[in-house]
């Protein structure tokens, strides 16, 4: 069994609410993290992302001008982003199914619905560090595999040859 040593990770918090940033920062320091950077909106967050190159991004959804979904889409630009693979944890008050799908389709790695708790945040961090989902690149999507039930091991078990064989058989 493994755990995450958060003291080795660099975090970026993006939230327009200063109290929420303070709460998340307090939790991260409680986990042992030393390097925590903050930004108060999506645009400043994108700049801080390029400057500080965090290991994990924690963002709010609802922010003025440039929200968490738009920020995620910018970070997941494979040809221009400094690290399009960075884990993005979205902390939000939205719990509706449609919202979860919207965040997933933007490329969010994990969602944490408010009210936030220490255990909930730690679990999301552990998940993106210890068991990251493979990334998918198509013409219309770049981001973590959206099919949660398909494990990375299943992909590894499938080879390109097997895939081609199956398709040739159907042809």
């Amino acid at each position: 069994m493994f755990r995450v040593d958060c003291s080795r990770l660099r975090f970026l918090i993006i939230d327009d609410n200063s109290y929420m940033r303070r709460i998340i920062r307090t939790l991260l320091h409680g986990f042992g993290t030393r390097e925590v950077f903050e930004a108060e909106d999506g645009a400043a967050g994108l700049e801080a992302f390029a400057t500080h190159l965090p290991d994990v991004v924690i963002t709010d959804w609802s922010m003025p001008v440039f929200d968490g979904i738009e920020l995620t889409k910018m970070i997941r630009q494979p040809d221009t982003s400094p690290n399009p693979f960075v884990p993005i944890i979205m902390i939000t008050g939205y719990a509706e199914r449609s919202r979860v799908f919207e965040a997933r389709d933007a490329g969010v790695s994990e969602m944490l619905v408010k009210p936030i708790s220490a255990k909930g945040l730690y679990q999301r961090i552990a998940k993106v560090v210890l068991n990251p989902r493979p990334f998918i690149r198509t013409d219309t999507y770049f981001g973590p595999d959206r099919r949660h039930l398909v494990k990375a091991e299943q992909y590894k078990a499938r080879g390109q040859a097997a895939f081609l064989n199956n398709n040739t058989a159907h042809a």
Partner: peptide, 15 residues
């Protein structure tokens, strides 16, 4: 295209 991450974050912080 399926991209399996190289585990750099895991190598950095997993204990």
């Amino acid at each position: 295209r399926v991209i399996h991450l190289g585990g750099t974050l895991r190598a950095k912080a997993a204990v």
